[in-house]
Structures are given as C-alpha cells and as structure tokens.
C-alpha cells in the first residue's frame, strides 16, 4: 500500500488535531490554576500565585497524597505477586476451567467500577462484618490491579517460551534457582511496566474507593471530588491537577526508557 502525499498529510493533520483536542482541556486547567477567578471563567480576569501557595500549605491535600501513595504501593505489591502467579498458571499449564480463570482475572476491570464497588462494600460490611478502613481500600484496589500485571507478564511469558528454563533445569538448577537467575530477569521489565500501571490505576481510582473507604480515609481522588465544587477550593484542585500531570512524566519516561532499552538490545 502506497499512501499518496495528500492522504499522508491529511492523516498527519487529523492526528495533530486530535492531539490538540486532547491537550486543550489540560491547558485550560493549567491557566485556571493561576487565574484570579474562582469560578473558572474564561478568559481569566487576572493572574495570581495564591492558589499554588495555598495548595502546598493545604494539610488536607498533603495527607490525601500520602494516603493514596500508601494504598497504591501495597495494592501494587499484592497485585504483582498474585498477577505473576496466575500468569504462570495460565500460560504454562492447560487445565479444566482455564478460560474461566482468565475471565475471572479480567472481570474486576471489565465490569463497571460501581458494581465492583457496591459488591465489595456489601461483602466487607454484611458478609465479613469488618468496618471499612484503609485496608478495605487496599484489598479492593489489589483485586482490580491484578489484571494489569497479568496482562504484561503473560505477554512476556508467551514471547520468551520455556527453552531457557529447560536448559537451566538440564544444567542442574532447581526450581528456585531457575526462577531467580533465568525467569525473573526475563520478566523484570514486564513486572515494572505492570507495576507502574497498577500503581497509576490505584492512585487514580475513585468509584470503588468511594464505596470501600472508611470514614476519615481520604485518598487524593476523594479529596479532589470533595473540593471540586467549593468555590474557594476549585483553583486549588486545578493546582493539584497540574502537579499530577507534571509528576506523571516520571512514570512515562521510565516506561519509555524501559521499552527503549529493550529495543536497543534487540
């Protein structure tokens, strides 16, 4: 297929336009974070640094960031272990019910968050009889984060095959040694990519969190939702938004470096 110059240009223009639409709203938030208007009116009547100063002094916001990081780290750790185990089971074995297990892993992310949310809320409070706390949020997040680790690891396992592990076993290495020296190094970047996604998913989750967080547990999304509609807090939400987008450059850069490294080695 040879694309004419016209169709190449058209495609480039369309792609560029879509990117512009994608970035305009984020740009508006950036400008609003400096605006003197508290009601997000455009064009901004004036500019101020007040909101930035207040955001960094806001104890509520800082505490919410801490809570979110805590939840995301533990949920990611659990998801890494469970997701890796289940990828090995599904990729290396054929057993009765394999497709059902596969569906079971995808389900927490395929079903709308509100269903997972009310199901877990009901499960914790009525069936288990445990009060909602930060740990119920962690359990809920880990459940739907498994799938991101699973997707990355199983894709890697499909590509690497078992030849090297068999060679390692033939050379006398035990199951553990083979995993440590042969399997794990092959999985490392897939685990990092899956872990990053799981962290981001947990850090950003609002719906399931709403239903599983105990009173007093305020993750960053809950903080943002609570403050979004308050006139004097709305610009602070803009500041948090800008900081989040800027901070997100780090994981993207990491992910790109990872895949870049791999391409170079290839």
């Amino acid at each position: 297929m040879r694309l004419s110059r016209l169709s190449r240009t058209t495609l480039a223009v369309v792609a560029g336009l879509i990117l512009v639409i994608v970035y305009v709203p984020l740009g508006v938030v950036l400008v609003n974070s400096f605006s003197t208007s508290t009601s997000l009116s455009w064009p901004p009547p004036g500019f101020t640094l007040e909101w930035w100063q207040r955001a960094f002094q806001s104890a509520g916001a800082m505490e919410a960031v801490g809570t979110s990081v805590f939840v995301a780290i533990i949920a990611t750790a659990v998801a890494l272990v469970l997701g890796t185990l289940i990828s090995f089971a599904l990729q290396r074995f054929d057993f009765f019910g394999r497709h059902t297990v596969n569906l079971l892993v995808i389900l927490p992310i395929a079903l709308p968050g509100i269903i997972t949310g009310i199901a877990l809320n009901n499960f914790f409070r009525t069936i288990m009889g445990v009060p909602l706390s930060i740990w119920t949020v962690v359990i809920a997040h880990a459940t739907f984060c498994i799938v991101t680790v699973f997707n990355n690891v199983i894709a890697r396992l499909r590509r690497t095959g078992t030849k090297l592990e068999e060679a390692s076993a033939d050379l006398g290495a035990g199951v553990w040694t083979t995993f440590r020296l042969v399997t794990f190094p092959q999985l490392r970047s897939a685990l990092l990519a899956g872990g990053l996604l799981a962290f981001a998913l947990s850090f950003d989750e609002i719906i399931v969190t709403t239903f599983t967080a105990g009173s007093g547990v305020t993750t960053l999304p809950i903080f943002i939702l609570n403050n979004m509609f308050r006139p004097n807090q709305a610009p602070i939400v803009s500041v948090i938004a800008v900081v989040l987008v800027l901070v997100s450059i780090i994981p993207i850069w990491l992910a790109q470096r990872l895949s870049g490294d791999e391409q170079q080695r290839r």
């Binding site: 994608v22 305009v24 709203p25 609003n32 997000l40 609002i206 943002i224 989040l244 987008v245 450059i249």
Partner: peptide, 18 residues
C-alpha cells in the same frame, strides 16, 4: 500516554471548565 496518567477527575473537571 500522558493524558492517561492525568487523573480521571482532573480530566472531567477540565471539561467542566471548558
């Protein structure tokens, strides 16, 4: 990828102001 990492709420909120 970048907007993917920006928070869901932030993006909905951005459209609210747009």
């Amino acid at each position: 990828l970048m907007p993917l990492w920006a928070s869901y709420l932030v993006k909905a909120y951005a459209w609210r102001s747009v």
